[in-house]
Amino acid sequence: MSNTSENPNPSSSSAKITLKTSDNELFEVEEAVAMKFCTVKQYFEDEKDNDVAARGSSTVIPLPNVHSAVLARLISYCKKLPQSNAVADNHEEEETKKKERKQYGTPGDLVDLISAANYLDFKEGLEFFNQALADHIQNKSVEYVRKFFGIKGDFEPHEEEKYREEYAWAFEGVDED
């Protein structure tokens, strides 16, 4: 984990911003990284104080909806954004990107990352993690999706049948009835 907890030393070359997570961890991050999060950016604009460099890490931005473990992951993703964000224009590149997306952990991790990216209004991250999650369920059966994500089917058998009937035309052997 790359967070520097309770680090009072702001004497590095580039401007830093301190973010405080839901579990009260402090993260000192470079301004360029923090500004990827529109929610953070908005915070500064609302304060009408864009002089981040001068105030530096004396400003602490609270992120009550983001856990430190999630924020650490988002920050590390942010740092390698340039490569990951290039548009894949052929099959090989798409495969590489798919592999890259797979590395971002279990579906549970992705749900956390998506929720946090959504709260932080971090567009590139949201795009990436949404696609990563979609990769997991692409071309999979209902049973697989349920098992994979630990979702319990909450349809009563007769309900499920009723819903399936709505889609009857979409299934094989529709004209049995």
Binding site: L126, N130, Q138, I151, F155, F171
Partner: peptide
């Protein structure tokens, strides 16, 4: 899963295409 913002889930499932949206996604849970 219920905690996931609805817009996020919509964004994810629309990436799967029409067939999934018709015969997989609806039957996972309510």
């Amino acid at each position: 899963w219920e905690d996931l913002n609805k817009d996020c889930l919509v964004n994810v499932v629309t990436r799967l295409g029409m067939k999934s949206l018709l015969i997989v996604i609806p039957f996972v849970c309510k």
